[in-house]
Amino acid sequence: MLEELYEEIILDHYRRPRNKGKVDPSDIAAHGSNPLCGDEVDISARFQDGRIVELKFDGKGCAICTASASIMTQKLIGKTLPEARQLIGSFLNMMRGETSFGGKEMGDLKALEGVLKFPVRVKCATLAWNTTLQGFQQHTDKQS
């Protein structure tokens, strides 16, 4: 059963996280934590012509948290803000079990499906995504 949680793709993103660090200067910067378990993540991003051109994460997290953040950065870079929000929304729905995971077209994201069998770890997988959403909200609030 552990193999379903720690898929090869997850372990790869955990051992070699993509887009780890800080975007500087950045348009958004948000901090998120899971107070019960000690996962912490910082998200920073830069927009250009309405698209996310740089998105990085930093912090101390478990394998699931780190891999999920890493996969997320790959999925969101190049997206517009509405597109990114939509993708995050549908991922969070899947992690709540409200909609089912897609197939191969999801790419590395599909590897996170196994987390659903470990309910206590779902919040690890969603931390970076929720934090990014928060960052987007702060960005929108600033502009309005």
Partner: peptide
């Protein structure tokens, strides 16, 4: 650098119940 959470999930699979996190002592951590 293995996160405590991953150790605790691994332990659970072997029937070993341990705690992972800051154990309600965040200032100490």
């Amino acid at each position: 650098d293995v996160h405590a959470h991953d150790i605790a999930t691994f332990a659970d699979e072997d029937g070993v119940a341990i705690r992972a996190g800051h154990h309600c002592a965040m200032p100490l951590h």
